[in-house]
Design a protein around this nucleic acid. Sequence first.
DNA 1: GTTTGTAGTTAGTAGAAACTAACTATATTT
DNA 2: AAATATAGTTAGTTTCTACTAACTACAAAC
Lengths: 138, 138
Amino acid sequence: MEKLINIISGLSTLIGNTEEEAKEQFNLFQLTSHQMHYLETIHLLDNPNITELALQLRLSKPTVKVAIDKLIEKEYVYKIRSDEDRRSAHLHLTEKGKLINHMHEYAHKRIAETILRKLNNDELKTLEDLLTKVLVDK
Amino acid sequence: MEKLINIISGLSTLIGNTEEEAKEQFNLFQLTSHQMHYLETIHLLDNPNITELALQLRLSKPTVKVAIDKLIEKEYVYKIRSDEDRRSAHLHLTEKGKLINHMHEYAHKRIAETILRKLNNDELKTLEDLLTKVLVDK
DNA sequence: GTTTGTAGTTAGTAGAAACTAACTATATTT
DNA sequence: AAATATAGTTAGTTTCTACTAACTACAAAC
């Protein structure tokens, strides 16, 4: 188990650093880590309304409202009023807002490249199968 | 490559979520994510002084100084004045501050357990060998 | 159709987190 | 030894981040 934990630690560092670098690449356009987290959570929850977002982030609705207003102002997010419940509005990422996902994709691609550089075809196939086994149904 | 990227994405999510959960476990003792990042960076830089820490975090020295004062107050960090340059002081984590590392270790252990549950001995050995190959000398 | 509930907003406030400018104390350079 | 530079600190300010209380508009329950 000791060895496995060390490997996971290494993997965690590799992924963390690569994501960090990717953020810096994309960070040219001014966003705080908090604001990035908002964008990620909107993506994760698949267009939540303010109440759902506040719940997930464990913040009050006014706090989230103010933060979202700034992201709307900066054109990372827009609102669509719900037809089913006209009190409510769903949050969507603009193209600019979706860059946050591209950022993660970019990081993952870079890690994939590292792996491809280190392994031959057979090894790659084996690694994919094993990791798939690890990841299925959580 | 597509398949590999998806696997990495899954792995990244698994690690991210597990670290997140671990943080919540340990979060009983009041620390903001910013403050945790300070502790992690002090560990990463291996007892930096204020100037080095500010440089790494890309913040001004007064900002970092104020933040560190609070962490000292709360007994997560202490300072040792340098003998070589008596203007300077190095930052150290207290036992309480080192919990931040235990937190990561705890997350990694939990991931290891997930893997052990999914794979048999042969598969585990193969996975370890392959990932070791991926991780060596970056 | 009146009451009660819910989504979102507005206003006001408190504390945290960032900055610049200017200071003290120690080191280094000339 | 005087001038310059560097580490850390202090003071003052601005912006960000969070909250509660109270409001509007719509929905649901009675």
